[in-house]
Nucleic acid binder design. Sequence first.
DNA 1: TTGTACGCGTTATCAT
DNA 2: ATGATAACGCGTACAA
Lengths: 347, 347
Amino acid sequence: MDAINIKQLAKALNLSTSTVSRAFRNNSDINKETKERILTKARELNYQPNHYASNLREKKSHTIAVIVPELANNFFLQAINGLERVASEKGYHILIYLTYDKYEKEIAFINDLHNGRADGIIMSVSGESAKEHSYLHRLKNKNIPLVFFDRIYEDIDAPRVTSNDYESSFAATEHLIESGCERIAFLVIHKSLSIGKMRMQGYQDALLKHHLPYQDELVIDCSNNLEENYKILSQAFKTLRPDGALAAVERLAIASYYVCHDLGISIPQDLKIISFSSLEIAPLLNPSLSTITQPAYEMGAQAAALLFRSIETGSMEGPTEHIILKSKLIKRQSTANESPVINLFQR
Amino acid sequence: MDAINIKQLAKALNLSTSTVSRAFRNNSDINKETKERILTKARELNYQPNHYASNLREKKSHTIAVIVPELANNFFLQAINGLERVASEKGYHILIYLTYDKYEKEIAFINDLHNGRADGIIMSVSGESAKEHSYLHRLKNKNIPLVFFDRIYEDIDAPRVTSNDYESSFAATEHLIESGCERIAFLVIHKSLSIGKMRMQGYQDALLKHHLPYQDELVIDCSNNLEENYKILSQAFKTLRPDGALAAVERLAIASYYVCHDLGISIPQDLKIISFSSLEIAPLLNPSLSTITQPAYEMGAQAAALLFRSIETGSMEGPTEHIILKSKLIKRQSTANESPVINLFQR
DNA sequence: TTGTACGCGTTATCAT
DNA sequence: ATGATAACGCGTACAA
């Protein structure tokens, strides 16, 4: 009743296991007819080569691991879609790991991946500021390629796919300024994380360019928890009275919407909001949300392509590639000056 | 430079491989000190037991496969989050497969999973009406447990976790009727799929109860493509002039919003909309969207629990469990009678 | 408590 | 073109 193996199949056909094995590998010499005979019988007996035995022999798992902070974020979703396409085209399988921004989880996952479970790793790093990355260096020693996407560690030399966060952040801030904002808050989750830093820098430089003062208190450090963010943002909006806000992460824009509604702050009259976000229905929000939208799907696909290049060449030599894709700034109602009517649903 | 194996580690310690092996397995008798010594050295040499060799020995992969139609749907997202929690608690790894509603993909994935890659499978079936499910029967022969969630095949006897679709659909339709609708459209993607059928039946029965005629033309069969749906729905709204719509799937509600905007149909005055949806920001839409919200996270968690029960008992005997969780009907602006002001952001 | 020896299911090498 | 055999790395009877 249990799984049939190659020996039993061979016996049933009066052939040797080697011949049977060859029938499943494409390159080897084998008589067409016997191959047919074997495959037919295999189907009949519901035989398939044991994956683990093959991997043990070949030292290849045909599996890649994807480590992301979370799924409840349209950016990661779309990115995974993108890399899934590439991986499945190559016949690779995908293991998914969620860190929930916990550094310890990330270490645990990576350590679990030293043992051959995956041929390569694609990762968007955990949010917690981490000093110690030796667990990543060890990967290299084992010849397991690693590719970063979106969120990276600057001190690790690995191929990476990111978007032009600095420029986007700069442009978004400038857009707020040009829409008349003078007290612009920057809503961020992990200041220390590289991605937060880039976005922050763009924000600061745009202020500078337009001779607006940078005020530390207007940088609002949030958490991953909706309740907490609600409190933090309520407090901040009440006391600081910003007239513009740039959210470094989608969920902070969402939280802001709830807060504004409850506090009677109207968007965009009292407060203009723009956010890094891959939310597809941003046009349908009330008011429609201006966004900086990263090419998430494409980033995922490119990251996968990069990884497969490493896997296929087998070597991790050569210059480390760094692909930067451009985000789009889409202006909608949440940063508009006049009242709606037109362009409400700009897509 | 390559991965170190148990032999080398044993040699480095002047021990036998069996002793080393025991250090990594918890139950076996082994001297505490030697165990410590082994683990220390292992860490030092960056040794970890080879996953594939272990699996080959133990015939266990500590991996489960999750097959879903897509990720771009909040329901599946949250469900995956739920089952990830359970799986990672058990130390299991998760393989993800996306069918994009293609029957052939589903078959290919399932066939790929016969070979030991996963200890069990959790699946929400592909949308295409499939007649032939022998590929699933073959799984049973190999003792690979299967659990359905949300979307099931009725002719396959496997544990399942669903929500009370019929009742929800009935209640939603009734809600529309009570809000004054008389020409209620039912927007669906795959009429033939079991889940579509249940939701359709609830719709029909509610009409019946309230003495409204069931009209075939008001059942609008859509696709998975936004462009196509836009056309289909535009046409339907223009010619059929429904005053209410129940969307069996989130994306059809979204498409409807776009269509209504472009056609100048105002929600809820001209058309009231309610949708099966796990969209967390439904309250933020313009207007906020009334939803039937399934307990997605919980469904995922329960499905995983069910699967692990099968995996752990090893037997697939006993009655097939069928867990039904209740969805919530949340009334918001899109089905309201009066003008907004109050409750706009009901969460 | 530790070591020896075999087998898990496959594929690569070598021989026929 | 096909068959015999060893080896991949590990875990477990069994022996010591």
